[in-house]
Nucleic acid binder design. Sequence first.
DNA 1: TAGCTTTTTGTCGAGTCGACAAAAAGCTGT
DNA 2: ACAGCTTTTTGTCGACTCGACAAAAAGCTA
Lengths: 243, 243
Amino acid sequence: MPDDTWKPPRILLTVDLVILTLRGGRLHLLLVRRGVEPFAGRAALPGGFLADERENILSAARRELREEAGLTDIPHLEQLGTYGDPDRDPRGRVVSVAHLAIVPRLPEPIAGTDAAAAEWTPVDDVLAARVPLAFDHLRIVVDGVERARSKLEHTGLATAFCPEVFTLTELQQVYEAVWGTPLDPRNFYRKVQGTKGFVVPAGPPRATGTGRPARVYRAGPCRNLYPPMIRTVPTVAAGGDER
Amino acid sequence: MPDDTWKPPRILLTVDLVILTLRGGRLHLLLVRRGVEPFAGRAALPGGFLADERENILSAARRELREEAGLTDIPHLEQLGTYGDPDRDPRGRVVSVAHLAIVPRLPEPIAGTDAAAAEWTPVDDVLAARVPLAFDHLRIVVDGVERARSKLEHTGLATAFCPEVFTLTELQQVYEAVWGTPLDPRNFYRKVQGTKGFVVPAGPPRATGTGRPARVYRAGPCRNLYPPMIRTVPTVAAGGDER
DNA sequence: TAGCTTTTTGTCGAGTCGACAAAAAGCTGT
DNA sequence: ACAGCTTTTTGTCGACTCGACAAAAAGCTA
């Protein structure tokens, strides 16, 4: 029970970003190499402190996306969760609001990046702990990837990985990469077509080099898929809900 | 671009609680009446500042649950989201980590409560703005209720509303109250039985007063339901993902 | 024009869902 | 004791969906 002189503690707030994309059929994550202590030299999520007393949290996430990754048009950005273990940062009480961002396949690593050492890393390498991360960032990545996997089931999130106009085969590759399961193209085709509002036709078929030219689509209006896409791999028995 | 003298801003961190329960077949929410400015006299979510520099966020949520609501055994407590609009609190920059708690039907309003004016309020009254809330708490309630509705579909969350041992009819009433849709008892029965690990038998049938005595169950081991429960009301077209 | 690839349209059996019927099992009055 | 009421539990039926697979369509290459 606080006495009359008690003042609430003041803490430092950061935003961290789990930025996912598809490269060569595999799910990748953007990591930066830390230049300063703590964890200097270690890979970490892009992110940083609130710029000033009045900066919005979502705006801060967008700013870091721009400054640290050179990304300005983000198809999907959502809050992931807040991580505030008192010992997560040796500098003091730093609470981080983690965000999940999805971007389509980009031309090359990163454009004019502030943190010069930003690079796309296969998510598998991070999850298998072959690439050690700073702070509690591994935990954040695990949660972010699981969020993406889950949202692919009942939202149109998969389209955020695709360019504005895409083929159903490209969309299927998103599911296969994020879920790590192969899907039957014929059933996938039928399923997506049958899910009203998931995708809408966009122009005439496009030749992809070899094989029959595919019809192209763009993201449909529906945010929530009904019926949902089905991930046969039974939702990885994840354990606790508490953080 | 911060210069060398730049220091990250320090902010105040609170936890707020959306505590849901079932009372008389309707979904209720615990609200306290604020005794001090700002918003003195207005209803608000239970919550408060971090107690000290080293308090865990989840621990703070549990502490507020105990202090403000007299609740100590919480079947479900999860982080909901973080709300940090710079103008949400006139006292300054206050960022709140909202949590969602589910408790079973309790004997009476609240036991030895710190905030004496805590009371259960029908969620409908809050959502319909018949009960105005302080700060951005309406928004938090909307998000919390939507989270609960959604999680009922593909997790065993419904059992958190029930006592340790319950009948399938009681479980059905949870779905009906939270979703606001009537369900067919026969199909519900078949569905729950067919969802492995959702519930497990617990002892002999129990007479409920009138009608055939019902078998009793307790919550099963599965956290993720497969196949999921189906909410025909097509997932209320909620709109944006961004906060 | 034959051969190859990829996309698109079907087919079939197993399983699930929603709407409904009917049996089972207790309690309440008379 | 038993008819009448309630609620739970077990079925039934047609429509629909899913996964596995076949086959046609439509381009490119040689």
